[in-house]
Amino acid sequence: MPAHEMAVEIEGLTKSFGSVHALRGLDLTVPTGQVTGFLGPNGSGKSTTIRILLGLLRADGGRTTVLGGDPWTDAVRLHRSIAYVPGDVSLWPNLTGGEAIDILARLSGPLDPARRTLMLERFELDPTKKARTYSKGNRQKVALVAALASEAELLVLDEPTSGLDPLMEAAFTESILEVKAAGRSVLLSSHIFAEVERLADRVTIIREGATVEAGTIAELRHLTRSQVTVGLDGGADGLSALPGVHDLQVLDGHVSFAVDEVELPAVLAAVARLQPRSIVANPPSLEELFLRHYGDELAAVNGTDR
C-alpha cells in the first residue's frame, strides 16, 4: 500500500511564460487510489499543471507534492512510479507502435507483458505499423497502452481520449476502472464531461489558471438544479407555486422546469399525483456545471458572434 494519502497535492501553484500568467494560484489534490477529473477549457492551464507535475516545467510559486516528493528535484525517483500520456502524442516516426510502447513503458519501469497483450487487443492496435502512418487516435492508443501496461502508481493522462472513437472510449473506461480497482491513482484531464462523470471520484474545475470548483461529483451536483420535463394531458396547476421550482414553461402538453436539488423528492411526488405520461429529471451534468462557470465567457463570445 502506498504511504501517501494524497498522490498529488498542489497549493497556490503559479507559473508565467514571459508576460503570460498561465497559472495563478491553482489548487489540486489527487487522493491515492482514486480517479480525479481535471476539467477546464482549452488554454486554461491543464497541460501546464501536468507538465509541472512531471518536472518538465519549473513552478514559479506554490507548493507541489507528487507521491510525497518534489516533482522538480525528485523527478527521476518519482518517474519510476508515474505513467504519462500527453495530450498530443509524438512518436518516433520510423519505429513501430509496438516498439514505441515497449520503450515508453520501460523508460519508467517494468512492463507487464500479459497486460500489454491484453491492452493491444482491447484497443485494437496493430503494433507492427510504423508510427509515421498512425492517425492521432492511434498515436494516443500507443501512449495509453504503454501507460496501462506499466505498473505505475500514478497515471497522469492529459486528454487521453480526444482522438479515440467511442468503442475505444469504452475500452478506456474499462481499463481505468481496472487501474482504480488495483488501488492506483489517476489524474484525468479532459473536456469530455461524460467521460469524467463516469470515471472520476472527484473533480477539479479550473479556469484561467485558477481552481474554481473542487469536490466529489455528488458535492458539485448540489450546486445546481435538475431540469425536469413532464408529459401531462391535464394542466400543470400549482406546480409553479411549489418551493424550489423555477422557470416553468408549458409547451404542447409538455411542462419543463428547474428544481433545486433539495426540493426534488417533494416536487416529483407532486408531479406523480398529476398522472404524467412521462417524467424526465436530468441531474445536472458536468457540462452544465462547466457552462455555469464559463457561461459569461461564452456569452461574451456569442455576443460578438450574433
Partner: peptide, 8 residues
C-alpha cells in the same frame, strides 16, 4: 419510491 425518470 421517487420516480426520477420515465423515458421512451
Amino acid at each position: 419510491v421517487g420516480l426520477v425518470r420515465m423515458q421512451r
